[in-house]
Amino acid sequence: MLEGKFEEASLLKKIVEAMKDCVSSCNFNCTENGISVQAVDNSRVLLISLLIEKDTFEEYRCDRNITLGIGLGSFSKIIGNGANSDYLTIQAEDDADTLGIIFEDKVKDKISEYNLKLLDIDADLLEVDAMETDATITLPSADFAKICKDMKTLSESLQITVTKDSAKFQSAGEIGSGSVVIKPKTDIDHPEESITISLDKPIDLSFGSKYLSDIIKATSLSQKVTIKLTEDSPGVFEYKLPSGYLRFYLAPKFDE
């Protein structure tokens, strides 16, 4: 049996909101250590890797490994029924064909229960764990979201170049071109505003703006985003959870 209780429904809401426009359904793999998901979008360009560690939960038990096939649009509708501050418990028997979702209002004496029909999903998984990294940028997630939105107005591609002391985001299209350069910065009073850039090799990569638009839907999950880049390889965009992460692997665009 699986039972996981979130201190606040808002966390699961944000996770599902960040995933649902990229993949319509995916398997949630539940083990005694927590819940993980790997899912690829229809065009096979963007991969989501989610890990919700056991410590994320107020209470967690999973007696036997369970795979829950979940339609994210339907899941989003049901968890949207709870208030952000409610306790949210997900519950499934070992051979369940539904997932129980329970909201508890912390002030009123009110409990709401829902059942979500589970799906049988054939997923083919990719081996993404052994990636090397040439450059790592950590910056405020809201800043990264704004850069992606602003550059998308110019072009369907965003070029990221990283040198020793700066990262440059640029786009060029029919109406014109634009660029944003960021440099490392330590803000002691507001550590969430700090920017770090570490580099083994210079980077010059281009990514599709529409996929970056999907990635920045995770912005509310974390004040920071870490971008790991390797020349001629997919970029990794990581939003940390209180215990775990939501990562996106995005295949680059190459010159023909």
């Binding site: 360009v45 991969l47 990719l126 993404v128 295949a251 023909e256």
Partner: peptide, 14 residues
């Protein structure tokens, strides 16, 4: 012109 690659170009199937 840049061509969009897919993840299968980089990662083996598990």
């Amino acid at each position: 012109f840049k061509k969009q690659k897919t993840l299968s170009d980089f990662f083996p199937a598990k």
